[in-house]
Write a protein that binds this DNA or RNA. Sequence first.
DNA 1: GCAAATATAATAGTATTACTATCAATATTG
DNA 2: CAATATTGATAGTAATACTATTATATTTGC
Lengths: 223, 223
Amino acid sequence: MNSILSNLKIQVNEKIYVKDPETSPLGKKIIQQSILLIDEIGFDNFTFKKLGEKIGSNESSIYRYFENKHKLLVYLSSWYWSWMEYKLVFATTNILDPSEKLDKAITIVTEKVTDDVNTEHINESILNKIIIAEFTKTLQTKEVDQENKEGFFLIYKRVINRIVGFINEVNPEYPFSKSLASTIVVGSLHQHFLTEHLKTITDCNEYVSTTQFYLNLTKNVLR
Amino acid sequence: MNSILSNLKIQVNEKIYVKDPETSPLGKKIIQQSILLIDEIGFDNFTFKKLGEKIGSNESSIYRYFENKHKLLVYLSSWYWSWMEYKLVFATTNILDPSEKLDKAITIVTEKVTDDVNTEHINESILNKIIIAEFTKTLQTKEVDQENKEGFFLIYKRVINRIVGFINEVNPEYPFSKSLASTIVVGSLHQHFLTEHLKTITDCNEYVSTTQFYLNLTKNVLR
DNA sequence: GCAAATATAATAGTATTACTATCAATATTG
DNA sequence: CAATATTGATAGTAATACTATTATATTTGC
């Protein structure tokens, strides 16, 4: 996968940002350091002022890239799901057996992420931690319908729908492929969260992975 | 169920509030109206000042009941899960067949809620909407480990563990009962959210219920 | 290599949020 | 009816979430 993705330029919806952060060194620094800072202090405590201090830039400069911190989180999420889509596509291309393809896909989306060295300014492993801890906050706002209309969540929905396609190939009769796919994707984030913080209500841990749980579940449901 | 619960006094962890809102008319008004206001404007836009205006009380009076709005949301969630636990217990008591008991339990926790007339100041149907839209925010903070230690999420975990018990009765060999139970409970909230806001990635709608999806899934997984 | 255009930094300012403190007024209770 | 507790009103602080303006760099196009 390394060489294939070495020129990876992830596209996110233009409406999410004021100015594309990929087009300047400051923009890239904003992305890189916001990931580290959100991981460090949490999204609720994160402010553009603190980010400005961290990167030695002025608050007002950050506002020229993102309207507010919510949009920045939507950007990071879109980037993450876009990157995940690449991984999904490359891992499943040329695999003919539907079950094997679905298993690969489930493994990709439920696995704990390690850093992808091909993107210099983004640490995917830490971004994955942010997605686990904060992703639902991008959806759970009063503006969700408006933002959905504007296409803020298109990439995320595309990831789900790719998995829906794989599920349908394995079992075209199964009537809940969309709900199963969304359950796997968002549910695995939650299981990772529980493994980290509420260990008593999950079976997933360092020995039994979230991936094993969802592979087993899916196999049984589609059989 | 009506008569059994008519004197229902839900207990929540004392550390969640400064002063028990159940002990005064103002406290009850805070609970009642905060549910309506959070539903109306969303938790992110909700402030004690706005709540004060709504109930004709001073902001500072509300602070005598809750330290901040996060704790109020934790209180509302605890109340909800405690009420849910009552419903679970009464719906499953005296049912001997493990599968039937599990089905009842899944139905209770995944169903859309209608108002319970036995609690005068709380509209459970609207509270359910808040839980669907905001529950994960009670967990997804930097303070989750500390608050978990203080027992803020005990009732929620108890609900999950009751379902774990039912799952184990149906199939003692199944190795992921905790993950399955937490997936059902938090996943069904998410499916309700998708039905409302991102319809293209769920199969649940007015004709096919979230409950049907989880009953089918559980049956297949434990068979 | 320089002028024009663009990006960034610095500063200031506003409205709102998230509280805390104090004291007066009102209700409750023993 | 006095003591106690509760609520309301007011004021105040620090932080947040921005917007606007102007100065200073940096980039680019010729």
